[in-house]
């Protein structure tokens, strides 16, 4: 697939996000639901960037969201009196990206030498170890966490702070989702993607062929981590204006990311959107219709979907459009 058609698959992705965004803006009182769905899509999209291309399961992925959240929280709580106005948010995002990148480089240097279940467990160790380091050494206020709603109000004014928490934070989440999708496609269509594809099929063979596997792995790993940092900074820090270590370093969110990616189809571009929407909407409706029982219903449904359709929704779709003119839009 060469030439102008190379980046066509981004069209349906952008269309899907645009439609979701428009629905949120147009339908009264549905914005937070849309924001939650966008969060799931972005989570899946950012997670999929590394996991989908390499087949490595980073179980401690949530640690990057956690440090990103802290990046924003620390920035706002310490610079709120600086008269920076909206610039503080920009600095916060920068800090989030820097924090998560640094952590990713440290983790990557250690864990990326491992494979399969060893890699997954090592990354769990990183997440838990980092959380206990924060609590044990009292870094960033330790277990007391940071509550910075007041600081945000000081920095931006009451009205603006409220709009940031209830509206702009969610727009940023959309931004992260789109950025993740664009980067995924860009990588897929360039050297990184080809190298990682070879790696996913057979890592040793790829190495023998002279592909610098480690370098491309680290590129994808860091990109995915930085996106997670931005997602934490917008979807958790700016939106909720507080952070407690056990709330953000919670393995459950990695599991959610895996569910989303697998429901949609691992390694596909559209998969995380499809997965995020299915996951978010079903969770939301079960919480409303059967409060207290939703997990009892949801868990067997997940098993059923995974056992019966292991290739995910987009995997099925790919099979359906194979050989038709729509083929070049779906990956």
């Amino acid at each position: 697939m060469r030439g102008s058609g190379k980046y066509l698959p981004i069209v349906p992705v952008l269309a899907a996000y645009a439609l979701l965004l428009l629905y949120g803006l147009a339908a009264p009182g549905k914005w937070q639901l849309v924001a939650q769905l966008a969060f799931y899509c972005a989570l899946g999209q950012a997670f999929n960037l590394f996991m989908g291309m390499t087949g490595y399961v980073d179980f401690g992925y949530v640690a990057f969201l956690g440090v990103g959240t802290y990046g924003m929280a620390v920035t706002i709580s310490s610079l709120s009196d600086g008269g920076l106005g909206l610039g503080i948010i920009l600095i916060g995002f920068l800090a989030a990206a820097v924090f998560s990148t640094i952590l990713a480089m440290a983790v990557g240097a250690v864990a990326l030498r491992l494979r399969g279940a060893y890699f997954a467990i090592a990354t769990i160790g990183v997440n838990e170890g980092f959380r206990y380091l924060i609590e044990g050494a009292r870094i960033w206020n330790g277990a007391d966490g940071i509550i910075f709603s007041r600081h945000l109000k000081t920095a931006l004014g009451r009205k603006m702070a409220m709009t940031v928490s209830t509206f702009w934070a969610d727009i940023f989440v959309f931004g992260v989702a789109v950025l993740a999708a664009v980067l995924t496609l860009y990588y897929l269509r360039n050297k990184v993607g080809y190298a990682l594809l070879a790696l996913r099929e057979d890592e040793d063979a790829a190495k023998v062929m002279g592909i610098d596997v480690t370098r491309y792995k680290i590129i994808a790993f860091i990109t995915s981590a930085a996106l997670a940092g931005l997602l934490g900074a917008s979807g958790w820090a700016l939106k909720l204006t507080y952070v407690y270590p056990p709330d953000v370093f919670e393995i459950h969110y990695t599991v959610e990311a895996i569910i989303i990616v697998l429901l949609g189809g691992a390694g596909t571009l559209m998969g995380p959107i499809a997965g995020g929407l299915i996951y978010g909407v079903s969770k939301y409706f079960l919480a409303i219709t059967l409060p207290g029982f939703q997990l009892l219903i949801f868990a067997p449904i997940i098993i059923a979907i995974i056992v019966i359709f292991p290739e995910g929704l987009v995997g099925i779709l790919k099979g359906k459009v194979h050989g038709t003119s729509l083929e070049k839009f779906v990956i």
Binding site: G55, V57, V255, I258, A266, I302, I306, V307
Partner: peptide, 12 residues
């Protein structure tokens, strides 16, 4: 099935 699938199934 993908290896990941077994993680999710045992989790569920």
């Amino acid at each position: 099935g993908p290896e990941l699938a077994t993680l999710l199934v045992t989790f569920s």
